[in-house]
Structure formats: C-alpha cells, structure tokens
C-alpha cells in the first residue's frame, strides 16, 4: 500500500471532526464513503452500504465455518481427504479475498488484513502470501485461528459502526 499520500490525506481528513472510530477502521477511507451521502444527517447511502456489508460479512463467515466444518468431518474419513482439503482451501481463500475487497473499501483495516491472511493460507502460503506452505493441515488450522480473530475484529468494528450510525 502506498503509505505516504495516505498519511498526508489522513491528517487532512481529521479536520472533518469525525468521532473516533478506533484503530480497526481507517478514517480516511470511511470518510470517502460518508462523503457520498446526499444528506449528512440521514446518511442513507453509507448506512445502507455498511449494513449491506454486515450482511455480506456474516454470510461469508458462515460459509467459512461450513468449509472448515466439512474439513473436520472429512478428516475422519480416509477417502479423498487430499482433494477435499485442497478444494476447501481454495474455497476459503476466495471467500477471504471476497471479504477483503469490501472491508478494504469501507476501511475496515483489521478485518481486511485478516481476510488477506485467510486468502494466503488458502493458497497454501504463509500469512504474507510470500512463502509457500506445503502442509495443508497447518494451513487449515491457521485459517481456523484467523477466522476466530477476524470475527472478533469484525464484531468490534460492527459495534463501532452501529453506534456511529445510531448516533
């Protein structure tokens, strides 16, 4: 990510006097969304986007849970374990990528970073997506751990955002 212009803009954005959204949300990016509202009181557009995102995130988490659950069931059976694991890893990676896109757009930095990790683990790589990892089970367990983390991060962000729109 290009950090320099980002930092510059952030300082400018601070002047808008938004309430503190915590370190899970990138103020500048989120502001961009808010700027699209026709009415700053109603915030119809940004609100619908953010709530739409909540829905999307929860659906995605459910899909991730399912993929992992299938994994769990599968490990007890001997047949097709290898293929199954690979296929589920692929699915998890693409789910991670999907949620990464929208969380990045809204500025949910922490959620985005975790989603990216899931994407990389699913590609059988380390968290930064640089080094290959050949142990599928290790990748799966890392995803499982990260999924827990990202749900927490998401819950935190959701709380902040709901408060923001409620206020």
């Amino acid at each position: 990510m290009p950090s320099d212009p980002h930092e510059e803009e952030r300082s400018e954005a601070g002047s808008l006097g938004l309430p503190d959204l915590g370190d899970g949300i990138d103020a500048l990016t989120f502001e961009q969304i808010l700027e699209m509202d026709e009415d700053e009181e109603e915030r119809e557009f940004s609100k619908s986007i953010v709530f739409g995102f909540f829905e999307q995130a929860e659906q995605t988490f459910t899909k991730m849970d399912n993929a992992l659950k299938q994994q769990q069931q599968q490990t007890n059976q001997i047949i097709f374990v290898f293929n199954r694991e690979l296929r589920d890893l692929e699915e998890l990676s693409s789910l991670g990528h999907f949620l990464k896109g929208s969380s990045a757009t809204l500025g949910l930095t922490k959620v985005k970073d975790s989603c990216e990790k899931i994407q990389h683990y699913g590609q059988m790589k380390d968290e930064a997506g640089i080094n290959a990892e050949s142990d599928e089970d290790l990748c799966l367990s890392r995803i499982r751990e990260t999924l827990v983390t990202v749900k927490e991060e998401y819950a935190e962000a959701e709380k902040v955002l709901r408060r923001f729109f409620a206020g």
Partner: peptide, 16 residues
Amino acid sequence: EDNYVNRRIMLKVLKK
C-alpha cells in the same frame, strides 16, 4: 465487479 458492497460504492463514486 462481483462484490455487492464495492459495486454499490463504485457506482456511487462514479455518479458523484
């Protein structure tokens, strides 16, 4: 764009 959230935002941006 396949992501609903991103699509909506982009549409909004472009409209702006």
